[in-house]
Design a protein around this nucleic acid. Structure first.
Lengths: 228, 228
DNA sequence: GTCTATAGTGAGATAGAC
DNA sequence: GTCTATCTCACTATAGAC
């Protein structure tokens, strides 16, 4: 039992945090196999063996990071109903996904690397929870199309479009920086891209943009999920 | 000198082909560091040391694969002028990129893994050739917007949207298969996705679809509800 | 020209010192 | 509870046998 852990964390808690951040970076860059405990330790500024002391094993560390990322992801996925406004829902969808990418680019890349190698640690999640979530959304989109509120596009492809277009700014950051000749993606780029995606995707699906009279209300509501 | 090399390739040519295919798979899955020559050799069905005999080193093998992929990529990038039809150009752009993804998913994933680790082998290409190509296209898109042929969207974001939306079906194949409960993406899925993307992106940018028999044909193609 | 045996390095993990 | 010294194994690469 640590008697004092706030605001000063104990050695363990402090080191574990440092290790998690360092490991997220290294795993994101090089994937599970390509990441070495040595490299993680160097990024964390700790002796290699201390890393293994704190986290147990490379595998446990990786799983912990994946779980942390999936909980961020899940926190983003609110439920919707067919009574909701398509424009508001799609915009909120794009905005929250983009915010996830912006706030956790390392975690997003970690996820990408995991999927790239065939998602061996996420099979259950993809085939279960996430699949059902997508199906539920897809049904709502189809209802909207039946009611003439949007074009009859394939709802699953639409979800993948939003995921890919936003995810891209984490996974392909190196390419984007090279082409745009920047050294980092800042708030202004993320704002600009988000507006662009909202415009193209909503219009492209034949959805009226969410009422611009009170966008501030939506914005606030969306942004209140500060924990993400 | 090999006296007979057609139609039967010599041992070297045959083995090199096998190695390239195997290596593309392994590098795509695990990235440069995560890939081991051992794993490549097993995938190729050859003794580990033979692989090194044929290709020289792990690094040379990786570079050769990247170059092969970049030449495929470059072969896809035709020039355009402001006199061209925006709908035709954008559709051709989407279709050819999607075809690249479909024909070379391993290569696409290899490229993704390279960019994910910060594109250390592609810095020159990204900052040079590719950057100029994007700038040239962007200027044409802006001319079209000035002439009222499309919405005044950011042309660079538009290019990234097309790249990301198509690339996704290689890089995140494992996620897509998990969610849609399929074991592989076939011709019909790729056709369906391509029609969807053409519809949404062109319409979303305010571009008239390239001349077709009729709009009914597009709708039919778009709406294949058998996705999930 | 093709392949095997082996060297040399760096990996993940742990027993035990502080 | 925290960290160091060390073990074992898998990796890339090569020298030399066929």
């Amino acid at each position: 039992m640590t008697s004092m852990n706030s605001p000063e964390l104990g050695t363990r808690a402090r080191n574990e945090n440092v290790i998690l951040e360092a490991a997220e970076h290294v795993f994101a860059c090089h994937g599970y196999r390509g990441a070495s405990v040595q490299a993680i330790a160097e990024a964390a500024g700790l002796p290699k063996s201390n890393v293994l002391y704190y986290v147990g094993s490379k595998r446990k560390l990786y799983v912990a990071l994946l779980e942390r990322m999936m909980s961020r992801w899940n926190a983003m996925l609110d439920d919707i109903s067919e009574d909701d406004d398509p424009g508001e829902v799609l915009e909120g969808f794009i905005r929250s996904k983009m915010r996830l990418t912006q706030r956790h680019p390392q975690g997003s890349r970690l996820f990408a690397a995991e999927v790239l190698q065939g998602a061996p640690f996420l099979q259950e999640y993809l085939h279960g929870e996430l699949r059902e979530w997508v199906r539920a959304r897809a049904r709502v989109f189809e209802h909207w199309a039946d009611k003439g509120l949007m074009d009859p596009v394939d709802p699953v492809w639409l979800i993948f479009l939003i995921w890919s277009a936003t995810q891209h700014y984490a996974d392909f950051e190196a390419q984007i920086l090279g082409i745009t000749d920047k050294t980092a993606l800042g708030e202004s780029e993320y704002r600009s891209v988000t507006e662009f995606l909202c415009h193209v995707i909503l219009k492209g699906c034949g959805v009226r943009s969410a009422a611009r009279v009170g966008p501030s209300r939506d914005r606030q509501a969306i942004q209140s999920k500060e924990t993400i």
